[in-house]
């Protein structure tokens, strides 16, 4: 119910922002036009979402892949290193990651994508390692003793049982990336941050507000979607 209401609000914010023009014109008479008039919010949202989705997929592949590697016998010695890396990495602000990516990769979508993907790995890596390592040793012993091959054990036992924690990591990663992607506009990526950054530079507060409303609702809708997915998984996990 709440999800449906917020989703509706979000869709309206993306498609019908110009309808609020009288409101912004009344509140900020000096700003013309009252609603951001560059790319439409729908276009900005699509660029923004594409950046978040692609970078999150990269984060999931790398983060989950790293966690699977670190929890195999062959990768066990790398686990403490990866754990430390994930913990320390998260203390860097995402802006710093972006600042490092630009000199290496130039301006535009690419450094933003790389920064988002790299920063997004950390919570997924950390949570997935915790989730997979937390599967009960007796359950693993039973799986081995029953003759499950290592890959069968991973897919049928370890990943399903670690799924709630893995999902929690993906959730943090995606939500942080939705916010961080706005900063990509400082280095030339087109995102929902474009009106925000433009508004800040040009001293046009309504554009900042408009961009922030859409990004904020986007993050809330995504988070509520994860919440729902998580509840479904927890119902299964209660069975542990």
């Amino acid at each position: 119910m709440a999800l449906a209401a917020i989703t509706l609000l979000f869709v309206l914010s993306v498609t019908a922002m110009p309808l609020l023009a009288p409101v912004f014109a009344w509140a900020f008479p000096a700003i013309v036009p009252p609603v951001y008039a560059g790319d439409s919010f729908a276009t900005l949202f699509l660029y923004h979402a594409a950046l978040v989705v692609t970078s999150s997929i990269a984060s999931i592949v790398l983060g989950l892949g790293g966690a699977i590697f670190a929890t195999r016998r062959a990768g066990a010695e790398f686990r403490p290193l990866l754990e430390a890396l994930a913990t320390i990495g998260q203390t860097f602000p995402p802006v710093a990651v972006l600042a490092i990516a630009v000199p290496a990769l130039g301006y535009g979508d690419l450094p933003t994508f790389v920064a988002l993907a790299l920063y997004g790995i950390l919570p997924i890596l950390k949570n997935s390692m915790a989730g997979i390592a937390g599967v009960s040793p007796t359950v693993l012993e039973a799986a081995d003793a029953m003759g499950l091959r290592p890959m069968q054990r991973l897919w049928r036992v370890e990943l399903p049982l670690a799924a709630p924690l893995i999902l929690a990591g993906v959730r943090v990663s995606v939500i942080v990336n939705i916010g961080t992607a706005t900063i990509g506009s400082t280095v030339g990526a087109v995102t929902l941050g474009t009106p925000i950054i433009g508004g800040l530079i040009g001293d046009k507060l309504p554009y900042v507000i408009q961009g922030a409303i859409v990004v904020g609702l986007f993050a809330i809708v995504a988070d509520m979607g994860f919440e729902r997915l998580d509840r479904r998984l927890r119902r299964l996990a209660a069975r542990q």
Partner: peptide
Amino acid sequence: YVIQSAGLFPH
């Protein structure tokens, strides 16, 4: 193979 705490797959 049977172990003390059964080791059933919880899911």
